[in-house]
Design a protein around this nucleic acid. Structure first.
Lengths: 344, 344
DNA sequence: GCTTCGAACTACATCGTTTTCGTCTTCCTA
DNA sequence: TAGGAAGACGAAAACGATGTAGTTCGAAGC
């Protein structure tokens, strides 16, 4: 139904080859005919059929996106949807569509890599996944251009949010407001979690904050109910913390609920900070103090780097790009006057 | 890099044609060779190249998704992301990938229809869009299989959430709890808005509720700030309503904020109801009373109907499918004892 | 023994592009 | 004037699949 290059060539009175070359910037075509061809192409709305082109050139102008979080929230993931949106926008700006990579297509099951080959995607962006799965390893060890988000692989480009500084800023922030008893409900084991937890301990250490083991709880990312339970446990401690770090903004809703259910208030009885900076939590009462990850840049840079790897494989070298984040000061951290630090 | 049918045919000692036919269920292939071929295919992980196949068969096993809301929220749209997620799952179950249709690919601008032709999508799902755009009309008038969500086109399959009953349930609910002064902050003009507003008036009428014009405000969907402003206007009225209907759940956050900013409380001073039933608002304090739209079924049915239109064009006829919704009773509607109705 | 037939397989054209390698002018130079 | 270079275009072979139209071969029919 769509118009093909044959019709265009008929219309121009030129051979198919000439038309193709005119459109693809070959130099052995006179300016006059190039003009005529592009003009005619515009008039009849000609676009080269992507499949025919992909078949010939091995380039599909499709980027694979692989995102599978533990909770299977998929596209509804509060944080990731922002990253994906900007990734998509930047990809489109470069002429790429995106394809979600999964391993259950119809009857058959294909591995991620097989799906990538099947659709012949030009590159893949991997995010928020269980990076230890063997299928991921198969993909990462393939010849495909790959950009990962927040997880570093050998010799692969990675876009990282600056989790070290992010957590550091948060710890310092609550410290400066007088908090000395700080708990952390962190996510399940992963590169991101490790980094954040490491930075948490390190910063606490530098500030001579003692973190008892009972202040460290584990939860699922993006899962308010698991944070709810962890929060209740923390609030039930004899030596109750004055401030709780929560794995992520969305899950922090669980903390809000737990505090409220126990008849307490934020920040009156307990301070809470999140991580991500999704818009929704800035509309809460009280507004959440958190770290805003620059999802716009993370997604866009991921797309940009991936396109660079695809289009200029010689010059584009694997690199680690760290995206800065910012502290969003909300209303969930109470200022204390710590008796132990009269000198401040 | 991926394995082709040629290698598979070599491996089996058969011609390419035979292998193809064996895999595609042709009957002039002996069971023995079919077995051998499928077995070998599995072993070396053969999948037919999607582009080659699409080129030949005119079927890409790709579904286009067109979603552009007024706010350009894209994939971050709280409600739509749930619909999309289930659409995607069901599409994949049927062997289809999805492709986002947009009109800014790289340098050039293509119409939605051109993008569909370019990628040769087998069908399109259109949702939440400004259905009056000429580009949409061009798409809808094309020969492509199309399913729309919540907007009815001539002779096109449409999946509709039951907005009439949804609003009706809400009105009756607040009525039964004694509310007689009910305001509605509705979204911008569209099919959905018209339906809901119509049902609102009709149900109010049936219950002999009078709705003064000043109780009807307009806002943007999914935009808390516009609801914030509208809520403040309503609360500033001399004849203040006792209950406010808000366009959608997410935007209802604006109402929460406005009420709180004016030193009032929900539901103590004013009752609020939303629409959509997104999980997040069920974690709020107070929990939002709202209508839960069955995003799981909406998305899945859209995909299912679209696949049916594609694969069985003879038997699949355009139809309107109405998906039921349910009332989620939260904590934002206060029970009043209306002096005017002592008889109840 | 020769034709006929059906089962099982293969050759080949085709889909819409890109791209290599020609071909044909025209023009310049020795 | 022959020869070559340069400029502008076209023919045809891919790319990896599908599907039509054969081909082959053994068995059956007469």
């Amino acid at each position: 139904m769509a118009v093909t290059i044959r019709e265009l060539s008929k219309r121009c009175g030129l051979s198919i080859s000439t038309v193709s070359k005119a459109l693809n910037g070959y130099t052995d075509i006179s300016e006059a005919t190039r003009e005529a061809v592009t003009q005619a192409a515009k008039e009849i709305g000609y676009y080269p059929n992507s499949h025919a082109r992909a078949l010939k050139t091995k380039r599909s102008y499709n980027l694979g996106v692989l995102f599978v979080d533990d909770r299977q929230s998929g596209l509804t993931h509060a944080f990731f949807s922002f990253v994906l949106e900007s990734f998509k926008k930047e990809a489109e700006r470069n002429g790429y569509d995106i394809t979600f990579i999964s391993h259950n297509m119809g009857e058959s099951t294909m591995t991620y890599l097989e799906h990538c080959h099947y659709r012949e995607v030009d590159g893949v962006c991997i995010a928020c996944i269980n990076f230890l799965e063997p299928e991921i390893a198969q993909l990462v060890n393939s010849e495909l251009p790959i950009v990962t988000i927040d997880h570093l692989f050998n010799n692969r480009t990675c876009i990282q949010s600056n989790n070290i500084v992010g957590i550091q800023m948060l710890v310092e922030h609550v410290y400066n407001r007088g908090h000395r008893k700080v708990a952390y409900i962190h996510g399940p084991k992963s590169a991101v979690t490790d980094t954040r937890l490491g930075s948490f301990y390190r910063t606490a250490n530098a500030l001579q904050l003692e973190i008892p083991d009972e202040y460290i709880e584990e939860c699922e990312y993006n899962e308010p109910s698991s944070v709810y339970r962890a929060t209740r446990r923390l609030l039930a401690l004899k030596n109750r913390p004055t401030c709780i770090f929560v794995s992520d903004d969305y899950a922090a809703l669980g903390a809000y609920e737990a505090v409220s259910d126990m008849g307490l208030t934020i920040p009156g009885d307990i301070s809470v900070v999140g991580y991500d900076g999704i818009p929704m939590m800035q509309l809460m009462k009280p507004r959440l103090t958190t770290i805003r990850q620059d999802t716009g840049r993370i997604g866009a840079e991921a797309a940009r780097k991936l396109v660079a790897l695809i289009e200029s494989p010689k010059t584009a070298i694997p690199e680690i790009m760290v995206i800065p984040c910012t502290l969003l000061e909300g209303e969930t951290v109470r200022a204390l006057t710590p008796p132990a630090d009269p000198g401040l």
